[in-house]
């Protein structure tokens, strides 16, 4: 306990301030739809600044977990803490917290307007000044290599281009946390590589916590520092990528990563 306190203590104006090392803490969280429990997590702490890979078979509750983490869906039961603060339903408070995170979906939904207007959307929501918006937006488009699309209607882009714009639209917000729900499952190999590279760079440059759901265990292996394996709504095993892939503790984890799981 003592050790933990020292570890989490930083100097601030000569005083010791306790810094919470966790971006999310889940206590006894569960989610049910029409009486059917689809997710149930006793305890889960997500550390700041790491890249997490969430894997598990279809219907395991991975997207549900991400939606809860993004406050898109309230849990049916349990406590969720973001940066040590309880997340309750109402109020501006939640909006402020939510603005520190953002999510990219499997199928990117771009607004029916120019690429530029899409990328600036979150900045405008946060009330940035116009000249900052212009600068940040063009930087983000540059990052994803799609500057020449600035004035195109976003609905005219290909799937890969659209997903890169969705990523730029998220990155431009410099979020503390980025939640990615199978962002590459509809993309060709070239765009998969680009999305992975951009994600890693975001993490390296800004220390963003990345939580990526993926069906592709090799992608999890390439990207994640830590893996969470879900099965039938339960967190079965978590550990470093190395440990999960080379020395899984649970038979089901082993079966899943070896592609031998029947479900």
């Amino acid at each position: 306990m003592h050790l933990l306190l020292i570890h989490c203590c930083t100097e601030f104006k000569g005083r010791c301030v306790i810094i919470n090392p966790f971006v999310y803490q889940l206590e006894d969280i569960s989610k049910s739809y029409e009486g059917k429990k689809v997710l149930s997590v006793d305890k889960l702490d997500i550390e700041k600044g790491k890249i997490y890979g969430i894997i598990g078979p279809s219907g395991a509750g991975k997207s549900t977990l991400l939606r809860i983490l993004n406050f898109l869906e309230p849990p049916s039961h349990g406590n969720l803490f973001f940066n040590g603060m309880t997340v309750t339903k109402a109020g501006k408070h939640v909006l402020d917290m939510r603005r520190k995170m953002t999510m990219v979906f499997q199928r990117p939904i771009l607004f029916d307007t120019s690429v530029y207007n899409n990328v600036k959307y979150g900045l405008a929501a946060r009330g940035y000044a116009k000249k900052d918006i212009t600068k940040l937006t063009s930087n983000a488009l540059d990052e994803v290599g799609l500057t020449e699309f600035t004035n195109r209607n976003a609905r005219s882009l290909s799937g890969g281009e659209a997903q890169r714009i969705a990523l730029a639209r998220a990155m431009v917000l410099k979020p503390e946390v980025i939640l990615l729900d199978e962002p590459t499952s509809n993309l060709d190999p070239a765009n998969v590589a680009i999305v992975e590279k951009i994600t890693k760079r975001l993490h390296e440059k800004q220390g963003t916590t990345v939580i990526m759901v993926t069906h592709n265990i090799f992608q999890a292996q390439r990207i994640a520092e830590e893996i969470l394996f879900f099965f039938k709504g339960k967190l079965i095993e978590r550990g470093s990528t190395d440990k999960i892939f080379n020395n899984p503790q649970d038979d089901r984890t082993g079966a899943f990563i070896n592609g031998e799981m029947i479900y």
Partner: peptide, 15 residues
């Protein structure tokens, strides 16, 4: 289709 995307980008309720 739009709501989740707008919300996750930090839009206020009116937006």
């Amino acid at each position: 289709e739009i709501k989740d995307t707008a919300v996750t980008l930090g839009a206020s309720q009116q937006m």
